[in-house]
């Protein structure tokens, strides 16, 4: 399945295909959004400029931020240690503010593969990866991943050997996970920027692995 859109061909700044224009007729919920926004502005809760700036910041976030963190961890052992000890602080070091949430980085090895889900809602490390893909929020992914992760991973084209332990991490509203995928073999000569190109969004959710080149 074409789940991973790392090549950005025909994609929006946040790495998704553009959605079909919804501006055919004003829906009830769209009217509610306009009304709520205008009332929140009039009551002094937010300003129109803040809303616009927040959307710009959202559009600027994409999986390349997470990929930069992973590539740093691959090339800088001291950073890797700090990332595994405190994901939020290590991300902040690189200028990526993950807010008050606790970010936990989990590392894939030859023996362990990690995958992230949010069974209760749709918690996702959005400050490092952008907004979550639709499938991440689906009932199918939320219900099945904790029970039959190997089957789910196989649907993403990832079949793991039986001797590899699969660890499923269930996110919460206050705690997010990001997977540090295993560094591919044969990448010793690549610098940090080139390595970051190998790190896909799906590899950081754990439904994929890093590209090999």
């Amino acid at each position: 399945m074409p789940h991973d859109h790392h090549d950005h061909a025909g994609l929006s700044p946040s790495g998704h295909p553009y959605r079909e224009d919804q501006d055919n007729s004003l829906s009830y919920w769209q009217a509610m959004e306009i009304a709520v926004r205008e009332l929140m502005i009039e009551k002094g809760i937010v300003t129109a400029e803040e809303v616009a700036a927040q959307i710009d910041a959202m559009d600027a976030r994409d999986p390349s931020q997470g990929a930069a963190v992973v590539a740093r961890a691959w090339t800088d052992p001291a950073f890797r240690e700090r990332l595994l000890a405190d994901g939020s602080a290590a991300s902040a070091e690189m200028g990526f503010d993950v807010g008050p949430m606790k970010l936990i980085a989990v590392e894939n090895t030859a023996d362990v593969h990690n995958v992230v889900v949010c069974t209760l809602c749709s918690c996702y490390p959005r400050n490092l990866l952008g907004l979550p893909p639709d499938w991440y929020k689906s009932r199918a992914y939320r219900s099945r991943t904790v029970r039959e992760p190997r089957k789910v991973l196989a649907e993403f084209g990832l079949t793991l050997p039986e001797n590899v332990t699969v660890r499923v991490h269930d996110s919460t509203a206050d705690m997010r996970y990001i997977v540090i995928p295993a560094r591919p073999d044969g990448t010793d000569g690549l610098d940090e920027a080139a390595l970051a190109e190998l790190v896909t969004r799906d590899s950081m959710i754990g439904v994929g692995v890093a590209k090999t080149g």
């Binding site: 074409p2 209760l120 499938w135 219900s143």
Partner: peptide
């Protein structure tokens, strides 16, 4: 609380949906 609810009729194949959001949704 959906984790593990394999019996649900909609707990089928992982859907292939993935798109950007409309302006009103971003707002």
């Amino acid at each position: 609380d959906m984790g593990g609810d394999l019996a649900h009729p909609l707990a089928g194949p992982i859907p292939d949906g993935d798109h950007d959001f409309a302006l009103w949704e971003k707002r």
